[in-house]
């Protein structure tokens, strides 16, 4: 239908609180092609909630509305749970922040990958096992046979996250949503995990939504970046143009980072403006994208 994998228009997520409804996401619109799209913001900016809304993971009493929420032209909004489950893990997969909480501690790694894959594919045990070993090899686990029979507590954090990626990519999804996939990992492991994700996404022509608080990392890893503030997208940028960001919030975030390459006497402190909450989204600077 369209060349967009995911198309979102005016997405809103709200929760009831004692003082009325709180809108965590307030009218987010974007399209995702076969690209790496970064979504950046601070805690409470609604970036994770946007990802969860796409996957239909917002639990009641949370409420999701949108003018459009489509995957390849198919509506995703308010699907019955049974159909959503088929899409989730089949056509869209998600990698969470901490593998410790997403892997079942009492099941071997291999069995979990097989389970994930067989939910969406019919195959014999031997075939499934073969596929799982292939997936482990694909995420550059040197000794797939050993890891296949290991339990989650027997593997390191970086290895766990690679296993998660293997599991999520096993059914060949069209879109991968990664929510802070590397923030629980050490920097040296982080690079490796990012490399793997990068290669797999590119080779398979998938779309990637990369949710993170780390502006620099996202600008280096992604093609395009959306900056979120208080439940809205305040600016859209080509990743390489991050230094040309025009929104004071984006600039403020960049300036508040301590730098490794030069001495800064005092870090710039972000002065939040109420006007940012309502302002229109800033389009990419001319010549960008």
């Amino acid at each position: 239908m369209s060349d967009h994998l995911i198309s979102v228009r005016n997405l809103r997520v709200s929760f009831p609180t004692r003082s009325g409804r709180f809108e965590a996401v307030r009218g987010v619109s974007f399209d995702l092609g076969r690209e790496r799209l970064g979504v950046v913001g601070e805690s409470g900016s609604g970036k994770s909630m946007t990802g969860r809304a796409i996957l239909g993971l917002v639990r009641p009493p949370g409420q999701v509305t949108a003018d459009r929420l489509e995957l390849d032209g198919d509506n995703l909004l308010n699907l019955p749970e049974r159909r959503m489950r088929r899409i989730r893990g089949g056509r869209i997969s998600m990698v969470m922040q901490d593998p410790k909480f997403s892997l079942n501690p009492v099941m071997t790694v291999g069995r979990q990958i097989i389970e994930a894959w067989r939910q969406h594919n019919r195959a014999s045990r031997a075939e499934a096992r073969q596929k799982a070993l292939e997936m482990l090899a694909a995420v550059q686990i040197r000794d797939p046979e050993r890891v296949f029979d290991a339990y989650p507590h027997e593997v390191s954090g970086g290895m766990g996250q690679r296993i998660m990626i293997a599991m999520m990519l096993a059914p060949d999804p069209e879109v991968l949503i990664a929510d802070e996939p590397t923030s629980a990992l050490d920097v040296s492991v982080r690079t490796e995990v990012l490399h793997i994700m990068d290669r797999l996404v590119r080779d398979r022509g998938m779309g990637l939504i990369f949710i993170s608080h780390d502006l620099n990392l996202v600008s280096q890893f992604c093609d395009r970046v959306l900056i979120m503030y208080a439940g809205r997208i305040v600016e859209e940028l080509a990743a390489r143009d991050l230094h040309r960001a025009r929104h004071p919030y984006t600039q403020g975030l960049l300036n508040s980072l301590p730098r490794l390459d030069q001495r800064v006497e005092r870090l710039a402190v972000l002065q939040r403006q109420d006007s940012w909450r309502e302002a229109e989204i800033l389009p990419p600077p001319p010549g960008g994208l």
């Binding site: 601070e42 805690s43 608080h213 502006l215 508040s256 980072l257 005092r266 870090l267 402190v269 972000l270």
Partner: peptide, 11 residues
């Protein structure tokens, strides 16, 4: 902490 808050605390 978020980076903007981190800047405040480090200062």
């Amino acid at each position: 902490l978020d980076v903007s808050v981190q800047a405040e605390i480090l200062n």
